[in-house]
Simulated assay, not measured.
Amino acid sequence: MGRGRAKAKQTKVARELKYRTHETDFGALARELHGEEQDEKTEIDPDEADPWSDYADSERD
């Protein structure tokens, strides 16, 4: 990709960030920055994290 194309893409992304309205959840941002504990609903159970991990190296010899 040439420099012109890369610059055009950067300009496009910058315009989208500048002019698009986003609904910011400042409460969630504050919790993330202060390192507060997550809700139990959002925690990932280690047994359910990767259902395919049992098959990762079982067929390699």
Rank of each mutant, 00 (worst) to 15 (best):
M1W: 07
G2D: 03
G2S: 07
G2M: 04
G2H: 01
G2V: 01
G2Y: 04
R3F: 02
R3Q: 06
G4K: 06
G4E: 01
G4W: 01
R5P: 02
R5F: 01
R5A: 10
A6S: 13
A6L: 12
K7L: 03
K7N: 02
A8D: 12
A8I: 09
A8R: 14
K9R: 15
K9P: 03
Q10I: 08
T11K: 10
T11N: 11
K12Y: 10
K12H: 11
K12S: 11
A14W: 05
R15I: 09
L17V: 13
K18D: 10
K18W: 08
R20S: 11
R20H: 10
H22V: 14
H22S: 14
E23K: 15
T24R: 14
T24M: 15
D25G: 03
F26S: 11
F26R: 10
G27D: 06
G27Q: 06
A28C: 07
A28G: 06
A28Q: 07
L29G: 04
L29P: 01
L29T: 05
A30S: 10
A30H: 06
A30Q: 09
R31N: 02
E32Q: 14
E32F: 05
E32M: 11
E32W: 05
L33C: 12
L33Q: 13
L33T: 08
L33I: 14
H34L: 15
H34D: 11
G35T: 06
E36I: 02
E37D: 15
E37L: 14
Q38Y: 00
Q38R: 08
Q38W: 00
Q38L: 06
D39P: 04
D39R: 08
K41P: 02
K41Q: 15
K41A: 13
T42I: 11
I44S: 08
I44V: 15
D45C: 06
D45E: 12
D45W: 01
D45T: 04
P46T: 02
D47L: 05
D47K: 05
A49Y: 01
D50A: 00
P51Y: 00
P51W: 00
P51R: 03
P51G: 01
W52R: 08
W52M: 06
S53K: 03
S53G: 00
S53W: 01
S53V: 02
D54E: 13
D54K: 04
Y55R: 10
Y55W: 14
Y55M: 10
A56D: 14
A56W: 09
D57R: 07
D57P: 00
D57A: 07
S58Q: 09
S58E: 10
E59G: 04
R60L: 10
R60C: 06
D61Y: 07
D61K: 09
